[in-house]
Design a protein around this nucleic acid. Structure first.
Lengths: 111, 111
DNA sequence: AGAATGCTGAAGTTTTCACTTGACTATTTA
DNA sequence: TAAATAGTCAAGTGAAAACTTCAGCATTCT
């Protein structure tokens, strides 16, 4: 169902995995090679690379290969997209809360 | 891997599905029974209920059954948790960018 | 040159996910 | 009271997700 696999789908999906969020946290201390990035996680290098591909696809991470070393760094674009989504939806949310407020006020007045 | 299935995992996972986000959008126009909520989606009632359970578990939706009708409404708690996560991580992100700035400045100075 | 390092690619496994079917229960309505 | 309505429950299906293993291939070090 839902044939439109949007950017935001991928973004939320990427962030829903604790290992992936841990990778981001780790990259916050600065750029890193894949293997030193992978070191503290108890999973294979391959698995970490797969996570990186997912993070890269939604612009949370950027990687660049020089020689045999691939360096990974945080890419803020994806995070910006998340912030945008949150900001847009907060206003909708607030509208709804206003409506609820009105409803409660009306109910109160009718007593 | 990663035995700690935290709240934020569930939250991001819940929001990663387009149908689930559509359900939220729909509920923004006000509380609704399960069947009228489900009407525009081309999936079974059962499927919608399953989505609702996921949304309810991470406090994005609240439901209440009166008689044979279950009324669904938005519950802002989950959204608050998301905003908190974004806010916390924006500062980390910014720190990283500062560090990058420092790095670039240092590199510049050494020329 | 030879060995170690850093990563890549393909294929397989297990678990989780989104969804369905169909049979059932409780509440309204006619 | 019978029939329609609103939702529930248990079990099953197919595809995607999160890994793994293992065999390769450049690059760098000795």
């Amino acid at each position: 169902m839902m044939e439109t696999s949007t950017e935001i789908d991928q973004l939320f999906h990427a962030l829903s995995d604790p290992t992936r969020r841990a990778i981001l946290d780790r990259l916050c201390s600065g750029p890193m090679s894949v293997s030193s990035l992978a070191a503290p996680f108890g999973i294979t290098l391959t698995a970490v690379v797969q996570h990186l591909q997912i993070l890269e696809k939604c612009a949370l991470v950027r990687t660049e290969k020089v020689g045999r070393v691939r360096t990974c760094r945080i890419e803020p674009t994806g995070f910006d997209a998340l912030e945008r989504w949150v900001r847009e939806h907060r206003t909708i949310w607030e509208k709804r809360l206003d409506r609820l407020g009105t409803f409660l006020a009306e109910e109160d007045a009718s007593k």
